[in-house]
Design a protein around this nucleic acid. Structure first.
Lengths: 204, 204
DNA sequence: CCGAACGGAATGAACATTCATTCCCAATCA
DNA sequence: TGATTGGGAATGAATGTTCATTCCGTTCGG
């Protein structure tokens, strides 16, 4: 991200790009394997092989296996958060805010199913560091605020805000999981139907 | 369960009981650790220590680490299935059937939170054998039948049956997860509120 | 006393990480 | 221009550790 006028005056751009590309290849390979076999079930040399690099190369980009899993977590959690925030209808009725969130999550889960599965499966795992957990916390606090505001306006059920959130997120995850397992085909129509169901679960 | 008039005519009850007890201790210890650290993250000697037996003893009761995880899966999946089937209101309206299922799941998840978390986390993992996956399939097929019957009666939304199931199960899991994380206190009232929400998600 | 059950050290395989070496390429020089 | 070279990047075999499983001397119930 930063471009320090470092040691060499005019750095080779192609070199920088190649570096970012390789780092990406490692992360993508790791996501695949972590989803398929879990963190402890995946060997670092396996990640290297799938990424098309040597085992030692991994350690030029990441300090440890844990650093990889945390980098993945923060990258995709950040990506999904940015997608939700972008164009969020701050002043709109709850139904519209809910629509924006649901479709945002669905767009992400459809575009990057592996990444979404990863975030699901590695939620609150012991190898996630404080930074990773902090990301999750901030997202949650933000959501709580919107739910409570909507409840005050009488647009959502008068139940614990956390309950409504857990039901909506849970319903979304449930649908995505069944789709991932091949029991459900993720068409735009199905996503819209699911959205309507979830809304009816939490609306006043 | 079965009492075959086997090899020894009158077997020593205390010995048999002690054996079952020790087997149980191993399974309970394994559930705890698998939930905390995952399958690959748990060492067999750790299981032995928590169960209060020697590492070698484990292999007198289970052929391998995989056999342990499958025994756990099948035991608790069977337990939860039996609980749901027991007294299921076969001829009642869908709302009542839903109530029975929701409360049955909730009773299980409250009584055995670790076991419920285990079933959640180890869903469709690569170390589950055909038998374990079969259990899951049969439960699902049964549920599908009830949902489709209720849809035919116009009591549930006219959407893909699998969608309604995934939303209801997902909502339940979402609530349990947040409770597990300490963000929600599982009182009977909260469970009832969640039930009402989930019902409104799927009812016609 | 006997045989089965037990415990825990022993074993061999697999793993995360390191490091001595090779490779690549851009800048330099003849 | 074409050969040379310096240094960062990449590599994969080597390392020390950890793990699932086995083995055998000991214990215990009957």
């Amino acid at each position: 991200m930063s471009s320090p006028a470092a040691t060499t005056s005019r750095t080779t751009l192609s070199g920088e790009a190649a570096k970012a590309f390789k780092r990406d290849a490692i992360l993508v390979a790791a996501v695949d394997l972590f989803v398929e076999r879990g963190f402890h079930g995946t060997a670092v040399p396996e990640i290297a092989e799938r990424a098309g690099v040597g085992a030692g190369t991994i350690y030029r980009y990441f300090a440890s296996k844990e650093a990889i899993v945390n980098a993945i977590y923060q990258r995709y959690k950040g990506e999904i958060f940015a997608r939700i925030m972008k164009g969020f209808p701050l002043e709109a009725p709850a139904r519209q805010q809910f629509h924006h969130m649901w479709q945002g999550f669905a767009a992400f889960a459809t575009a990057e199913p592996k990444a979404f599965a990863f975030l699901e499966l590695h939620h609150h795992a012991s190898y996630l560091d404080a930074e990773s957990c902090g990301v999750e916390d901030r997202v949650m606090r933000l959501g709580l605020g919107f739910v409570q505001a909507a409840q005050a306006r009488g647009e959502l059920k008068a139940m614990p805000a956390m309950l409504l959130i857990s039901i909506a997120i849970g319903a979304f995850n449930g649908v995505m999981r069944k789709a991932w397992e091949g029991h459900l085909e993720l068409t735009p129509e199905l996503i819209a139907q699911a959205e309507q169901c979830a809304w009816e679960a939490i609306r006043a």
